[in-house]
Simulated assay, not measured.
Amino acid sequence: MKNILVATDFSKNADKALQHAILLAKAYQSKIYLIHTYLPYWMEPGVYADAVMMQEALDEQQKSVSAKFTPSIEVLEEAGIAYETILELNDVTSGIFDAIEEKQIDLLVIGRTGSGGFLDKLIGSNAAHITAKANIPVLAIPNQIEEVKIKQILYATQLEFDETEVLTQVFAMANKLEANVNLVKVEVAFEPDVQPDQQFLAEIKSKFASEKFEIVMVKAGSVTDGILTLAKVQEADLIVLAAHHRNFLSQIIDPSKSKQVILRSPLPVLTFQLKGDL
């Protein structure tokens, strides 16, 4: 993990996202790219400006926004982390994906917006939306998180796909952070069990025989409820999901479980995207 991108709106929640990025950057000796995107004032409804006024306003806005990086820069310098700031005239999603490609980002860290209530589930949040579209791991930090630490990791497995590549990265992270990993499979009555669980359990135990971990099977009314309940019981600091890119039809029939977890979790959620459709 060489390059970490942190999206900031200069809020307290963005500061928490940065602190988590610093924790990982220290473990991996990574560089942090801190990005903020903005749109011109004159794009707001009811604002009119001619060409000269627009350029003057844009220059002033850029100067004003750029100055807001200062507190974060001081934090990064105090932590001894290599960094670069990115200020882009763009919308949030486009700016982030441009930076991911240009800077060869390995991990995106973003503060989660919203409270996970009805409105969030209806229209989503930037964190959940970006996570669903990203082709790199995304760490979403909720606004209610207080302590910045990762010592207990809960990995939610589907036991339906080969997750070896993701698990390899998770165990590597755990070793660098001196953290523990527990795997959980939530069994729900109406969920299809396409592949035999024992097949994947045997493969995981064989491939990661040198790692210390537990695999817990739990029953719950929903996958999300099961994951969040067990995370609380195990006093987890981080939830890890391996989510499948779904085709259009399956998104309508069965809303993304990873998005539900991201929106509702009081803990940081790290999502890896598995390629392919269900």
Rank of each mutant, 00 (worst) to 15 (best):
Y155T: 11
A27Y: 07
N13E: 01
A128E: 08
D237E: 09
V184I: 15
P40A: 04
L154N: 06
H20Q: 08
G114Q: 01
V269W: 10
V47L: 06
Q62N: 07
T8C: 01
Q195H: 13
I100G: 01
P266V: 03
P137V: 09
N3A: 01
S206K: 15
I239C: 10
F161W: 14
L23I: 01
E187L: 15
S206D: 15
E147L: 05
A82P: 02
V269A: 01
V218H: 08
A209F: 11
P45S: 07
F272D: 11
P45N: 06
L58F: 10
I96S: 01
L76Y: 02
E203L: 06
K68T: 07
K31T: 00
I22K: 05
M43W: 14
E56F: 13
I100Y: 05
Q251R: 15
S210K: 12
G226I: 04
V109R: 01
D120Y: 10
M54R: 08
V166S: 11
T168N: 12
V194H: 12
E165Y: 12
V184P: 03
A67C: 06
M54A: 07
E163A: 06
V186C: 05
E163Y: 15
K63H: 09
Q234H: 12
K133Q: 07
L24M: 12
G80F: 04
T131H: 01
Q234L: 14
A128M: 12
V65R: 03
P268Y: 09
L5E: 00
D50T: 10
I105Q: 03
L249W: 13
D15H: 04
T168H: 15
H244C: 05
P142Q: 05
H20M: 11
T85F: 00
L18C: 02
V65P: 02
I262G: 02
K151T: 13
N180G: 11
T93W: 06
Q61W: 04
V52I: 13
T157W: 13
S222W: 05
A172W: 09
E163H: 07
V170H: 09
D237V: 04
G95K: 02
F171E: 08
A127K: 04
V261K: 06
